[in-house]
Amino acid sequence: MRILISCVLLVILSLGLVFALEQAPFGSNQIDNADKPGRFYLNQGMEKTGAANVVTSVVVTYRGFDTLGEVTILFIAAIGLGAVFHSRKKVKRYEKEKQSASLILQTGCRFLFPLIVLFGTYVFIHGHLSPGGGFQGGVIIASAFLLLFLGCEEKKIPMKSMNTVESLAGIIFVGIGLAGLYWGESFLENFLPRGMDYMLLSGGVIPIIYIAIGFKVGAELAGIVAGLIERNP
């Protein structure tokens, strides 16, 4: 009964979607005139902000408030995870009866962990010059910490310093926005000088924001994974 009703509903929905999408122009240059937002960002992006990656300047400068909301949502998810797993009565300590990792994995993860962190740092520092940015680099750093959890277990991750890094990075992001309000005209405005093209220190305040976002996302996701692993079943 349930399967029959859901199949009928899905057939109706798919027919509606197909008929609506048939009218949509795919692959044609429908944004020829200059007052559409896409054309405006492409024409003005390089001259006004100085960042070579137009998607980066859209995410950080033109739609910076949405990025602030997204960072807040990640923060709320981490808080919610901590609140769900908090228990008032004492839970007994999880005795380590699981087997330790093999020799190849232990040696490999000790060798690979600094390389992956270096790669993630490269990705979020060069966010305004090549494809990449704060979110991609942060996730790469979090996956390096995941490897550390699986491979070598005797190295304890200091959770307190992760929380400190995450909170400091969030405060720096909002602080830069308020500094834009003080020295410029609006919240999150680009108030530093533009700089030369294709250089590392160009684009005004964009690299600083992306470095703060990279640290925050990496510490946050590593904390989420640590909270899920160490929960006693």
Binding site: V123, P131, G132, F135, Q136, V139, I140, A142, S143, L146, L221, V225
Partner: peptide, 11 residues
């Protein structure tokens, strides 16, 4: 593509 590959396939 980078975001989807790292988040969707790994994390």
């Amino acid at each position: 593509a980078m975001a989807e590959a790292s988040i969707g396939a790994a994390l």
